[in-house]
Amino acid sequence: MPKPIATAGAPGRRGGRAVLAAFILLAVFMVLPFGFVALNALKTSADYNAHGPVALPKAISFDNVRTFWNLVDFGQVLWNSVLISGCVAVGAVLLSVLSAYAIGIGRVRGRLWILVAFLVANLLPQEGLVYPLYYLAKQTNLYDTRLAVIIVFTVIQSAFGTYLLSSVLSAFPREILEAAKIDGAGVWRTLWQVVVPVSRPTLTVMLTFFFIWTWNEFLLPLIFLVSNQNQTVPVALGVAQGEHIVDVTMQAASALIGIIPAIVFFLIFQRTLTRGVTVGSIK
């Protein structure tokens, strides 16, 4: 690609620097709130009151983080989020694989309408399901259990997964399926030994997204998980605001604790995430 031509007509050299500066400013603005949180979460409240939020901490103190951690039993909360998101991610991928296999490769009759139904299920606002689900959970003794949240999100995420995977599998190379058939593989074995291994990249993207989407969910976990030992990270933090937290540095500590797992996922999955956004939106 000839560079000079591609940028011809763009601002001149000095203008180029100005544009870069504007973008850096934007990036700083996007990251700044996280910086402020990190800066102040490790201060004592006396330090904060004396020197304000912009000053560097006089001494690094984990007191606020530790106090908040114990207050909401954050170790347990973190485990709940990992457990729920992990189970949902695996369950929803499995369910999507089964349904998408029937639709994309099996080409079952009425598949267009089945897909529309999955799409609608995925788009429905959870507000329209929340009260009946709450009521049914109470009836079946699943209220305030992590299992209830796992079941509901497995279904909701797999609605999107089926929609996406069906269109991916409908382009699955027919020769490979034929070859498996000639080797005597049945429908079931073809799925696990041919289709799933070949589709691994797509399934990895789905697994990552389901995990993070479920991690970030708020409304249904808020309704279902009332007791602290079952709560997820966003719910525990959201509920703690105004309930336990009076101190401005402790609020920063609580924010930091919520941000860190997300940053870890971001660093681990960055490539999958940016690739996945495109797979997910432009099928």
Partner: peptide, 14 residues
């Protein structure tokens, strides 16, 4: 990539 609720906590604090 952050939970919306956590973003709410951050801005509520700021």
């Amino acid at each position: 990539v952050m939970p919306l609720a956590v973003m709410g906590v951050v801005w509520g604090w700021i």
